[in-house]
Design a protein around this nucleic acid. Structure first.
Lengths: 345, 345
DNA sequence: AATTTTTGCGCAAACCTTTGCGTGGATGAT
DNA sequence: ATCATCCACGCAAAGGTTTGCGCAAAAATT
């Protein structure tokens, strides 16, 4: 049924080795023979069997990508970045989502090992050190994107969360705010801490006090989580006049909760997000946020992986981290504090 | 380096065939032998080589998925639906994005053929009849999701666009609108036509005239496209009091353009979207839209593909289409028309 | 006890490609 | 004419698995 090298060889009157070499551009085969064979292959409708060639060669030209979930504006764009460079380099992309289930993650790593992917890119998931170790034991290189727990001896690309938290908070301070809250996300580790650290640092630099009651966390990173977190903050005695949210979706939820409670944004309370997801500019009011180089996170990770694969002498030990910088995006959800709160509380 | 069946066989003192059979649960091997072998395999850290087994077997247990792009709220959720059922069934997911480039699409189909995927799911892209034919020639079954051009003899799952357009328009009519515009998307084929058809049908049923000047198209399906389309509609002599947009992002753009021009939504002009993307409830005002069963589109397509693969006697000819129904979601972007336009213009 | 059946497993081929090594013929040098 | 060189290609092994067939030993039947 399907045509193989042997079939082409029979028609061309050569051995299948010659066909293989001709098709792979091996210089051993003179050009005229090569084009003749190529032509016959095309006429016969030959489609090389990557799976057979992968068996003989050592690599599969496929990269595994593990991501928490696909239907997330942030991750989707990172994925697109990865896919674009993999496509350009002729690599395939084997995708799986962990959905935060450790057993699913486990199964995925196994499946990727079995499929002999050349490497795996792990994106924004709480991946355990052991799993990664298990992979590296098989010589499967790994690149981490925004890993939650800082993992030793790993290749990773991250964005600079701390400077983002700092930039947003400083922006609010410059607008005159002093009662600034931080609305985090209880299920994320390093990232929420880093952003919180930036927030604290900004307060510190401005000589403003840090108040524990101004730090709340939503149960998750969605709009619902933001709304729930905001409701907590609204119960504080002296309400904050600005809130730095963990991400844009939470900020959107927070604004929703504020509106529900009868407060205007930014008149009564400024709100900032984080990530600059495409939507943040279309909500009303458009969101002040910190832009993440999402797409670039993907491309950088993919390129790092490709570099890793090209230097065959896998000195996987040499850890490497590249940190991408974001930028403050000021829109209309942040403004001066309400009158009377300008200086001090 | 890596441990193979042969290594296990050596330790267990049997042949590698026996190991293979034991590990695959072949009843020929008595249970006690099987568990003994299984144990040795585990101790040795054996990881089956799917690529070798795929060579011997005829199938790869991998499905190709071709999608226009990943960073699109709609497609991402469809993808998640696909991934979830594939994961549950032990299938892998090989992902590629066409990004509307025909040559890229071509290359992707080729790459998928070469990788011997068991089938491909094509999602919402303007895929040509020939490409699909090329795949089916190789016995690679195909399932289409929301294909733009209705393609003959194909398996596909779609949503019912016409009834969506009809439901939205009827909703506006019931609110009292008579000057209702349709804002389409010039780059999509069947879908925009179907929604338009539903719009016309609703007008027709209500005895309202269809006016060509009330039908505009944006250059693309994004918020920018919606804004640009809306600007055209605002130039019409007698402005519409409601506009049915092709999708939510365009609706968001349209609302933006209306605000820029000093009009209120819905006081001056109602706006409806299509898709009910997660964000549509968080924009201000929250968007009236037509919910698409995105996730289910994915799961249905994956399940259809799996059914296709299970009946080995590939009677691929038997076309099959399943249409999923959506539902109207009324929020605050639609309301009664401004005074004085209620009856007639 | 002799014969048949069953059980448990090994042999080897097959899947398709890549590649080290070898070979026969042509070409060039002496 | 003889020998070394080189060119173009073929042979066969290798990569890891699955599986039809066969075979010896054990069990069951007579």
């Amino acid at each position: 049924m399907t045509v193989t090298l042997k079939d082409i060889a029979a028609v061309a009157g050569v051995s299948h080795s010659t066909v293989s070499r001709a098709l792979n551009g091996n210089p051993m085969i003179p050009p005229e023979t090569a084009v003749r064979i190529r032509k016959i292959a095309d006429e016969l409708g030959y489609v090389p069997n990557t799976i057979a060639s992968g068996l003989r060669r050592t690599h599969s030209k496929v990269l595994g990508v593990l991501v928490r979930r696909i239907d997330d504006a942030f991750l989707a764009e990172v994925l697109q970045g990865i896919e674009d460079v993999l496509y350009a380099e002729g690599y395939g992309l084997f995708l799986a989502t962990s959905r935060r289930k450790p057993e699913r993650e486990q199964a995925i790593f196994r499946s990727m090992s079995e499929r002999r992917v050349d490497g795996v890119i792990v994106c924004s998931t709480e991946v355990s050190q052991e799993h990664l170790h298990q992979l590296s034991k098989f010589g499967v290189p790994t690149v981490l994107i925004n890993n939650q727990a800082a993992i030793e001896m790993a290749h990773s690309v991250t964005h600079d969360d701390m400077s983002g938290g700092l930039a947003l908070t400083r922006h609010l301070i410059e607008l005159g705010h002093s009662r600034i809250a931080y609305l985090g996300h209880s299920r994320t580790g390093r990232i929420t801490r880093d952003r919180l650290a930036g927030y604290k640092e900004a307060l510190n630099q401005a000589g403003l006090p840090y108040r524990a009651e101004y730090v709340a966390a939503g149960p998750n990173g969605s709009a619902e989580g933001g709304a729930m977190g905001m409701e907590k903050l609204l119960k504080v005695d002296v309400r904050p006049t600005a809130v730095v949210c963990f991400n844009d979706m939470m900020a959107i939820g927070a604004m929703h909760a504020l509106r529900q409670a009868g407060f205007g944004v930014p008149e009564d309370c400024s709100v900032t997000g984080f990530d600059n997801i495409p939507l943040s500019q279309y909500v009303n009011p458009p969101l002040t946020t910190f832009h993440q180089p999402r797409y670039e996170l993907g491309t950088e990770a993919a390129e790092m992986m490709l570099r890793l694969l090209s230097r065959k002498h896998k000195n996987l030990n040499a850890a490497e981290t590249i940190a991408l910088r974001g930028r403050l995006v000021v829109r209309e959800s942040s403004g001066p504090p309400p009158d009377g709160t300008r200086n001090g509380q």
